[in-house]
Design a protein around this nucleic acid. Sequence first.
DNA 1: ACGTTAGTTGACCGATCGGTCAGGATTTGA
DNA 2: TCAAATCCTGACCGATCGGTCAACTAACGT
Lengths: 199, 199
Amino acid sequence: MAAVTLHDELRAIALAEFATSGYAATSLQRIADLAGTSKASVLYHFASKELLLADIVSPAVDDLDRLLDSIDTASGLRHADFVENFVDLLLRHREVVPLVINQGATLDDVPVMHRATEIMRRVAELFRLASGSTMEKLRFGVAFGGVAYTLAAAERLGLSGEIDVDDLRGALLVILHELLVPSEQSLAPASLADPTPKD
Amino acid sequence: MAAVTLHDELRAIALAEFATSGYAATSLQRIADLAGTSKASVLYHFASKELLLADIVSPAVDDLDRLLDSIDTASGLRHADFVENFVDLLLRHREVVPLVINQGATLDDVPVMHRATEIMRRVAELFRLASGSTMEKLRFGVAFGGVAYTLAAAERLGLSGEIDVDDLRGALLVILHELLVPSEQSLAPASLADPTPKD
DNA sequence: ACGTTAGTTGACCGATCGGTCAGGATTTGA
DNA sequence: TCAAATCCTGACCGATCGGTCAACTAACGT
């Protein structure tokens, strides 16, 4: 095995354990045992368990934050482009997706996780989730929830190795496009689907 | 009769806390505090924390088990019918869906949760997940994962009250049907798709 | 040679965990 | 009135949690 610093190895082990067993259920002692070191050593490299989690999750959250900023500034960017960028981002940070998806709500008191959920709210805002009809909301929820959850499940069950990433990417884009662009027209803010029906 | 027993109240409180804060992060002491009783009292009504979880989750799992059995025996039942029954089941047990969806994998050592994931495997089997193409697998994953996850998120964020259940049901069925029956023909080869395959 | 720094560790801390237990209330049935 | 059953509780238990700390080792620049 290539020379990997203990710092990086600890982060990798923690990520795997957090994702499969859960943050709360993973003790620093267990992480230390898996790395063949001591608990005190873990706390030397990472000041606290929360900061260890932040160190793991932050890159993905920063990435998403940057993506959303680029959308905001370049107002002309179409939703279809965002979908593609979003899928790429999910694939890029494939390993941390299960963490934020399955345990993000539970760990909302941890700053980095709170930030993650706040940013997802921005994504929802971008797609006018709040103002859409029930059907629109559900399309958005099923699409992104489904994609993220499926990636999470695949990662968790160890199926990621079996599936070609390019196939995965292409198939996800097709499915997302079908869901979010049900009609021939674009996802443009004007009308995602039909005008809101009477309620 | 209307008087809610402490037993039922404890179960309801535990369900809400398990779903929002997580099983591991919810202590028996907190459940007791929320119910205005003592931890020992909780352990009088439920022999252990695991059995409390089982008491909460079992009805939904039993329900799903029964649904799958009825599918197995009545081989003629079509997929569309199953989808409808499945959505109804999810809506019926709306409150426990976040629990098994978000924490099922993490709590696989708890018998009732292991049973839940095993049954979900049967659902996947029913849709021939393993033998399908990457696209088929993803359609299944995004569809059911998306629906379950969206229900979980809605429940968690307290949006359930805002949305009319009938609207919800109808919209979910439309979306699932679009995803699982993309073309004119059914998803599954022969047997399950058509009760009377041509000979 | 020396001091400095980074890395590592066992011992230890207070807090909290799930769970046990003996016993105090309260109700019920005879 | 007595006794059994039911419900509830404070005190307590061993285990484990995240985190601290002083001491130790090894490497490096000077």
